[in-house]
Simulated assay, not measured.
Amino acid sequence: MSEQPPGKSPEDVEHLLRQRLEFLHPVAFELIDDSAHHAGHAGARGGGHYRLRIVSAAFAGHSKIARHRLIYGALDELMRSRIHALSIESLTPEEAI
């Protein structure tokens, strides 16, 4: 059985994302690892493919682009190492109803 390198398992990535995005005080956070669906394509060398659904009152008054900039800014080097692709659904609590 092969082991994941340290910090590369989906659980580690989820823990890191939760830590990095804690400043948004999310009321809901869901991370889905879609890496298996992308195995073998040309860009799949480093990092996984993930879908993030995050609900936070901190997104109120911000455009979708501004919300994504907040998230990508917080993830910084993770986007160059452990995450190859991230699909984001960022909602306020009112939008998530």
Score class of each variant (00 low, 15 high):
Ser56Ile: 11
Ala39Gly: 01
Ala28Asn: 05
His38Met: 10
Pro10Asn: 02
Phe59His: 13
Ala60Ile: 05
Leu16Trp: 04
His38Thr: 11
Ala42Asn: 09
Arg51Met: 05
Ser9Lys: 15
His49Thr: 12
Ala36Cys: 04
His37Leu: 12
Arg18Pro: 07
Leu24Arg: 05
Val27Trp: 00
Ser63Gln: 12
Arg20Phe: 00
Ser35Asn: 14
Val55Trp: 02
Ile54Gln: 00
Asp12Ser: 07
Gly40Val: 09
His25Asp: 13
Leu21Lys: 03
Leu16Ser: 10
Arg67Ser: 03
Asp34Gln: 14
His15Asn: 10
Arg67Met: 03
Glu14Asn: 06
His37Asp: 11
Asp33His: 10
Ile54Leu: 15
Glu14Trp: 00
Ile32Leu: 14
Arg45Asn: 08
Ser9Leu: 13
Gly46Pro: 05
Arg67Trp: 06
Asp34Val: 02
Ile54Val: 12
Phe59Thr: 12
Asp33Ala: 12
Leu17Phe: 12
Glu30Pro: 07
Val55Asn: 04
Ser63Arg: 08
Val55Ser: 03
Arg18Met: 02
Leu31Met: 11
Arg18Val: 04
Arg20Tyr: 00
Gly48Cys: 10
Gly47Asn: 06
Arg51Pro: 02
Arg20Asn: 03
Pro10Ser: 02
Gly47Thr: 04
Ile32Asn: 09
Val13Ile: 15
Ala42Leu: 08
Gly47Cys: 03
Ala39Ile: 10
Ala57Leu: 01
Arg53Ala: 09
Leu16Lys: 03
Gly46Cys: 05
Glu22Trp: 03
Lys64Ser: 00
Gly46Asn: 08
Gln19Trp: 10
Asp33Tyr: 14
Glu11His: 04
Arg53Met: 10
Glu22Pro: 06
Phe29Ala: 07
Ala28Pro: 01
Asp12Tyr: 00
Tyr50Ile: 08
Arg51Cys: 13
Ala28Gly: 02
Ser63Phe: 15
Asp34Ser: 04
Glu14Thr: 04
Gly43Tyr: 09
Gly43Met: 04
Leu31Arg: 09
Ala66Gln: 15
Val55Glu: 01
Ile65Asp: 02
Ile32Trp: 07
Phe59Leu: 11
Val27Arg: 13
Gly40Arg: 03
Arg51Gly: 02
Arg67Val: 00
Val27Phe: 03
Arg67Lys: 07
